[in-house]
Amino acid sequence: MAQWGDGESYSDGVYGDNTYDSGAINSLSPYALDPSYLPKEPEYIFPIESRRRSLGDRILPVTGHCYLSGIAVGGAWGLYEGLSTLPVGESNRLKLNTVINCCTRRGPFLANNLAVLGLIYSTTNHILCRVTEQEDSMINSVAAGTLTGALYKSTAGLRPVLIASSLGACFVGSIAVGHYIYSNRHRFLRYNTA
């Protein structure tokens, strides 16, 4: 009787006269995947998809990162506030309750506000990319940050709108410049190591 994997046939005797070619079974094994079956480039249904991202592809990561950052920073802010305002001489349960109340007051507040900012930024950036037909342009990002700040504080008056739009432009501009420097770091390192 032959062993599996040596290319000979195997008869099991239990289920009758079934014969299996072990060489054919090994070639179809999921553990021995032939890389030539995998596509070399991304496959798209329509050719226009290869260069454009959808609105959902833009909104979900930005809004999620903003929300998680807000919950982390807001939770730390609430923890600091709760520990600094502990009631003296009270029981440990009351002290713990004070800290938890401060964390749950600040964390969701900051997380929701940052998620709304991320949602507005993603939408305005997507609209600007469609209007200008430039995908992931630094100018579109800074303009989207400016519009985000202006829309976020649009009900507060002209001065808060100007302050928020300039803060949005500076924040997104610094991120865009940092991303440009990081993505082209091999150029900067080559010139600075001489």
Score class of each variant (00 low, 15 high):
8 E>C: 02
160 P>A: 04
93 R>L: 10
181 I>Q: 15
193 T>W: 02
34 D>P: 01
130 R>L: 07
101 N>D: 03
194 A>C: 13
90 E>S: 12
173 G>S: 02
88 V>G: 04
85 T>Q: 14
66 C>Q: 03
13 G>V: 00
173 G>K: 11
53 R>Y: 13
19 T>N: 05
96 L>R: 11
53 R>K: 14
44 Y>Q: 03
3 Q>H: 08
142 V>N: 06
2 A>C: 02
165 S>K: 07
100 I>K: 10
133 E>A: 11
178 G>A: 14
107 G>K: 01
106 R>K: 10
29 S>T: 00
70 G>Q: 06
112 N>C: 12
8 E>H: 01
45 I>P: 00
40 K>P: 07
10 Y>A: 12
155 T>D: 09
22 S>P: 00
75 G>Y: 10
20 Y>M: 00
11 S>H: 15
174 S>P: 07
46 F>G: 03
60 L>S: 02
187 R>F: 15
1 M>I: 08
23 G>S: 06
58 R>E: 06
179 H>M: 12
94 L>Q: 12
101 N>T: 02
139 I>T: 15
41 E>M: 06
143 A>D: 04
29 S>L: 01
74 G>C: 01
157 G>P: 00
124 T>E: 12
3 Q>D: 14
170 C>R: 02
155 T>V: 11
130 R>D: 10
105 R>W: 13
33 L>Q: 13
84 S>E: 06
146 T>Y: 00
96 L>H: 11
135 E>F: 10
166 S>K: 04
80 Y>G: 08
181 I>G: 04
27 S>Q: 06
26 N>T: 02
30 P>T: 04
40 K>Q: 13
76 A>E: 00
59 I>A: 07
55 L>T: 14
127 I>G: 05
168 G>I: 01
143 A>L: 13
54 S>R: 01
24 A>W: 04
26 N>F: 06
45 I>T: 07
102 C>K: 15
186 H>F: 15
31 Y>L: 03
137 S>Q: 08
83 L>I: 07
79 L>P: 04
159 R>P: 14
171 F>D: 03
